[in-house]
Design a protein around this nucleic acid. Sequence first.
DNA 1: ATTTATTGTATCAATATGATACAATATTAG
DNA 2: CTAATATTGTATCATATTGATACAATAAAT
Lengths: 250, 250
Amino acid sequence: MQKKVTDEDLSGEKFIPNISVDIVIFGFHNRQLKILLLRFKNTSLYALPGGFINEEEEDIEEAVERVLTERTGIKDIYLEQFGVFGSKKRAFGETHKHIHESAGKTTELNQWITQRFVTVGYYALLNLKDTIPNPDDVSDFCGWIDINEMPTLAFDHKSIIEKALESLRMMLDLKLAVFNLMPESFTMNDLQSLYETILGKKLQRTNFQRKMLSLGILERLDKHWTGGAHKAAYLYRFDKNKYNEMQKEK
Amino acid sequence: MQKKVTDEDLSGEKFIPNISVDIVIFGFHNRQLKILLLRFKNTSLYALPGGFINEEEEDIEEAVERVLTERTGIKDIYLEQFGVFGSKKRAFGETHKHIHESAGKTTELNQWITQRFVTVGYYALLNLKDTIPNPDDVSDFCGWIDINEMPTLAFDHKSIIEKALESLRMMLDLKLAVFNLMPESFTMNDLQSLYETILGKKLQRTNFQRKMLSLGILERLDKHWTGGAHKAAYLYRFDKNKYNEMQKEK
DNA sequence: ATTTATTGTATCAATATGATACAATATTAG
DNA sequence: CTAATATTGTATCATATTGATACAATAAAT
């Protein structure tokens, strides 16, 4: 959702009015799918990272990349635009006033932010371990929240997240973007649990393994001893070179 | 792209600034896929139907529906949002000036339309026969143009159309929206040629027929005599009831 | 040494898809 | 009227994909 106006914003930068971007940043850790959320200062209200588009200098996607870097500390992140939210009810003046006051701001709330906004939804897929979550100036928390433990979300961010997940689900087998969520090396079981949380259903282990191996994009590494009382699983690595060759052939 | 400002617009209606909608309206006739285009007065410049969003009263989709009805005369059309185009280069002041002058307008060109616009792309699927294409006040032509004979298009409408087609192609087997393009009754061959133009490749007749029949949503009607020196083909009808039952089971 | 949990692979059945064959039939040519 | 021709509907076979089950390998605990 719309990032609040900082001092920088007020001095010079000019945003396209009435348009924001919101980013559903997915990460994967401990076999759980997570989303990066902000919490507004002195509230229990959470929200998606978001921002506005610099009128002179930025494509929409560039604005998204800027916000992504601000919140996660990293660049070159897998991005997908999944929808626009333009209901006439998308004017959140009261909520913004509340957030503004809770943050202890003494200045007058900028009028423009209370107007109706159309927001463009993007989702990002990244390796959670690489990130250093960083709150903005109206948030006191920025961090990873499990997809199954969503807190109260501001604005219409709940439905934006649902749409993002649905979109991710549809793309799962078409693109192989899911590997952006995985660490450098992982076991089949790790990968399977990611697929299962995204799809929201259990998959059959042996057939899943067959399918993944037949993609021809996984490089097998050393075995991985868990300490468990059983055979060790292999680690795999997503092989970008093989993937690129595959894409060329299409 | 952005519809030009009419007298109505100037008197009272208030649009969200910097945002437009553009609609790729698909129709199918004579075994050819067509798009509804406008041609600006006294030019050979074509463009997609489009418009702006009433700030007080309209969801984005409602604005799209309004424009659709204005240009085609019909309501309740299948709609799908396929993308947002927000390049920083999307400011078309010079083109608008040219269109404005060619249309013989003596008034000053409204400044707001020369600014940067973010446009939301929708595609619509409808039965071409039901429509009465209707130009707007800066166009002298509104009609169906074959997808393979695209004229020079204004703004970035060429790439918007390409993206729409790509999106339609991806959705082809996921949804069964394609039937919105067909007339009340049609032969398998008609349907196949539609699939072939969308996919841009030939399909095998017998297997296509098997696939369509196995969907369980086609009702077989009488035979259809073409006058050709061969067996008559059956006509089929898309059975909405069967389709709805199918969806419920999912 | 035996037990247990998990892994990698093989295999068989059920489906789906690609390719080909062929009978049915509406018209035209002779 | 008969034969030729083009197109349609359906069947069938081979191949590929997917679902379900079996089983041997093995790391640690008993």
